[in-house]
Design a binder for these strands. Structure first.
Lengths: 132, 132
DNA sequence: ATTGACACTGTAGTATGGTACAGGGTTTAT
DNA sequence: ATAAACCCTGTACCATACTACAGTGTCAAT
């Protein structure tokens, strides 16, 4: 399999070239081998890794958290149990996030439902509720 | 009613003094009148305004969005429906996030459940799945 | 009157997650 | 061979939402 240039990885993963170099500096992707010219030569699975990062970001994980998730597979002495433990921590973290978002959503929904559509904003129950 | 000092407003609203000056620069709170000394003299309702900002932030609005929300109250022609529409947009974003998090949580859970505890991480099904 | 707490402006720094050059060298296609 | 397209490092910059000074002036209590 032909190694990929940074531009090819960027294009396939749907991110900018600068973003890849940024992720590399942050340790989210491995420093790939270089050509004699210094050009990066990415293995094919680099694209998958970047897509994973993108997805995790969309789910609200910070880059730091994503680095932790990714480090699960790199640590040489890591036992499967360790990985499982981290995964479970993440699951609980995800549940907390869902709960917080649900609270937020419910509050907004309650307000929105109580909102008529004709009055001036000065009588809007959303604004009034927030004003208390 | 006695006007409030910036420190009093900060304390009552539960924010830092610097935050108030920052909000003032951003146009989220009105520039209050000043004493001859230059000290800010806030009307009592300044506290409510800051609490409004705090709550809206907790509901996931950015300061920019909050400024827009606040401006709706001031614009004479603003309809309650406009505010409702913005709230509903927020609700839909929140729902998307929850759905995505649930997917990720389920994926992690499935992996975690299939994970033994004795093997080295290199054979861990979680890690293998992340690589896909 | 003097001390300590409080306030002022202006500037700079923090963290997060990138994005945009400048000033080079390299590859590829014609 | 030469031009376009690509890549390199390093640094600086963007928005967001604060937070922390430095250097100075003011207010309240004793």
């Amino acid at each position: 399999m032909e190694p990929l240039s940074i531009g090819q990885v960027a294009k396939q993963a749907g991110v900018g070239i600068e973003t890849l170099r940024f992720y590399e500096r942050r340790g989210l992707i491995d420093s790939p081998p270089r050509k004699q010219s210094g050009y990066r030569q990415y293995p094919e699975n680099a694209v998958k890794r970047v897509v994973f990062i993108k997805r995790a970001k969309e789910l609200g994980f910070s880059l730091k958290e994503i680095a932790e998730l990714l480090s699960l597979r790199v640590e040489p002495g890591a036992k499967c149990a360790d990985v499982k433990k981290r995964a479970e921590e993440k699951i609980s973290h995800i549940k907390d996030k869902i709960r917080a978002l649900k609270r937020m959503g419910n509050t907004l929904k309650r307000l929105s439902d109580s909102c008529g559509v004709k009055g001036p904003a000065s009588e809007c129950p959303i604004l009034e509720a927030l004003d208390k």
